[in-house]
Design a protein around this nucleic acid. Structure first.
Lengths: 399, 399
DNA sequence: TGCGCTTTGGCAACAGCGTTGCGAAAGTGG
DNA sequence: CCACTTTCGCAACGCTGTTGCCAAAGCGCA
């Protein structure tokens, strides 16, 4: 569990299947854990409130805690500089409520997007807004040492540029496949030397920061989850670029799967005995969709994507579908209406006329993945229901 | 929220999108909650240990709590009759460890399976084992009052039969669609009078017990999750009877979706422009699969099911696929090998030779759904990661 | 202007949680 | 028989959110 403890678990007695299988038997909670839980909960509500702020009593009502407890918690948060009083609400007959707000600049987080040919690095504040950004060409196929050096240089430049508040960690988003639990890359197509490379720990050591590693689509989905289009508790982010992938947010949390394999959306088979796909199977969405794009049949491509999205909606009962990626952005309206049409037709066959799952374009543009990567380390600060992983490497709570 | 508190939430200030959208902002935790959390955690480990038992120090190691804390917690559990000492382990040089075991008979739970033509009711102990069972014909299409009366009568007979320990609640499994959050049925095909009926609250009042309502496939999946074939943190239960449905257990928890709509597996489209399905779409798995069965093409049916399962494995990164349902059980080997073949082929195309996701038959037989229904109320007793819903209606902790 | 009323929010005392310190109990091995 | 190891509970402790109480701050009516 801790940094220097292999946890051999070789003691006598039964072997608990849940030791690693599922949520690792959920850690037992003590008072510090309880304190952290509530503090994170309050921080999460402060973030949701944004500029508008929240009063102590509203926090109490939403957390279920006593007003007194909220007072104590917010006092600690203010002492740490994470929250501040900001004006007061109109009175409702008595003393007016004091409005509390998150102080976004109190901490920073680094988001890194390692793409095949480019590195995007952002420094984000607690609200998730980027306060600085850098881009650099990157040869992802090159030697690992060179990539690490580039990252280290850019991060140093970023921190020098914006300086100031403590940095809580760095989130790293890569093309898959990889293992977010171990922080290790797997066989990235076209870059065999990365197979098995412990990127998370290597970067944690070089940066002197806690690091979290995840797939690029997962990071993008996590970033989108922080800016709910209208309150997205469950949604799917479908990314159609040179390939097709997905990030799944279920019940407010990112679903990664035990091997970080979830969201492999491109090779869903949509046409039994369909055309052969590069992956060796037949009738994959990705192959069907990209083939349609290649021959200029955009409505056809959108329809294929829509059917796959409809399958996903049906299977997982999600609230919303978000589209992104280069190919989508070349013709956003075409894809949006095409997918929406399929989902509307699906809703009709289910007797839910007028309540089709909405489709929209993922906001954020080219920086979406890097912004989401920063959320990999920011999200855990804002409480449960907020996904993310306990960052590994160096001391947590750095700074 | 509570029975006598409308909680209008009409105060000034921002409207939190997470108030209901996602995990309801996660409740704030106080000391009783902490105590309950840890007690449930320990109970869960005791259940996992089964007959073999666990020592206090092993519990401490697995929870991360201090041995002293475990001693206090287990002392409380023993005082409540939920746990007991049962022998001791061999010494490793000092005082031998005392083995603790769950006392399964300390509490009971009722599991109800309301099928179209039959009611199955079980009384299960804490280990999930049925101590009593009753079956009765049921006209699910009949008037609600008649169905409720039948349920009440059977439950009373069941409790009279096995008597004894307090009953913690009743889990009710129905064919969908329904809303497990509100405990309300939706338009069940062939039984329009149930649409909008608050079955959970009606039963809670008549039985005088907390009641949890869920779909039959979800209950079955939950039941299977308690008896891990080898430690299933994530799996899909595919039920092929007169229709095709699924129950999804992701990361140890049942994934229901915000509208209890998850697991609608039958109408995944697998063949664009395929044969028309009764649902109005084309190329649904259910239609393809059942058509193959009807014409005696079992390998074909198994292959179709296998492809759909492979899509699911790919999308969600699950550990295991379990098959059940009348149609499968008529030819288990055929379906098992057929599905396994497709998954093996998929694993090969992904370069994971020899590590295909295993397929097996869901155990439990005709009583599986009723057993799982009991788990709807039992699972929450055993800690987080254990899904289930806070039962509504009457006092929780009844008895 | 003055007073009562309502609402907010902090100080102090409190009950209860897991933790720490220490000693009794119960074995093994020389 | 004694030294040693390991298990496990009692007692004191620090820290959590809670409760009781009171000051502060505004509204509204006389």
């Amino acid at each position: 569990m801790t940094s220097s403890d292999p946890e051999t678990d070789a003691g006598p007695g039964p072997d608990f299947p849940d030791a690693e299988g599922r949520g690792a038997a959920g850690p037992g909670a003590n008072l510090p854990a309880l304190r952290g839980h509530n503090a994170a909960l309050v921080l999460g509500l402060l973030r949701s409130a944004g500029e508008e702020g929240v009063s102590r009593l509203e926090l109490a009502a939403h957390t279920g805690l006593t007003p007194q407890a909220v007072s104590k918690i917010t006092a600690r948060l203010r002492a740490e500089g994470l929250a501040a009083e900001a004006g007061r609400r109109a009175s409702t007959g008595g003393k007016p409520r004091t409005v509390l707000r998150l102080v976004p600049g109190a901490r920073h987080a680094i988001g890194l997007h390692l793409d095949r040919d480019e590195l995007t690095a952002v420094l984000a504040d607690l609200a998730g807004d980027a306060v600085a950004e850098r881009r650099a060409p990157l040869a992802f196929e090159a030697a690992a040492a060179q990539v690490l050096a580039t990252v280290e240089r850019e991060v140093a430049a970023l921190r020098a540029e914006a300086g100031g508040p403590p940095v809580v960690g760095a989130g790293v988003a890569c093309p898959g496949p990889l293992d977010h639990t171990a922080g290790v890359l797997h066989r990235v197509t076209g870059a065999p030397q990365w197979d098995g490379f412990p990127l998370r720990d290597a970067l944690a050591e070089r940066l002197g920061l806690p690091v979290v590693l995840d797939k690029d689509t997962n990071a993008a989905a996590l970033g989108l989850a922080q800016r709910p289009p209208d309150g997205a508790g469950s949604f799917a982010y479908l990314h159609l670029g040179t390939g097709l992938g997905a990030g799944l947010v279920l019940g407010g949390g990112l679903h990664r799967g035990p091997r970080t394999g979830a969201g492999e959306f491109g090779h869903q088979i949509l046409q039994l005995d369909g055309p052969r796909c590069g992956c060796g199977q037949h009738g994959c969405v990705e192959a069907l969709c990209l083939a349609a794009v290649a021959r200029g049949d955009l409505p056809g491509a959108a329809r294929v994507l829509g059917v796959a999205a409809a399958n996903l909606v049906e299977l997982l009962d999600i609230d919303r579908v978000l589209l992104g990626g280069r190919t989508v952005l070349e013709n956003p309206d075409g894809f949006l209406t095409g997918v929406a049409d399929v989902l509307a037709a699906q809703a009709r066959t289910r007797g839910r006329t007028g309540t089709a799952v909405p489709v929209s374009l993922a906001v954020g543009g080219a920086r979406a993945v890097a912004d989401g990567a920063a959320q990999l380390v920011l999200a855990p600060l804002f409480g449960p229901g907020n996904p993310g992983l306990a960052a590994r490497g160096h001391r947590p709570g750095a700074g």
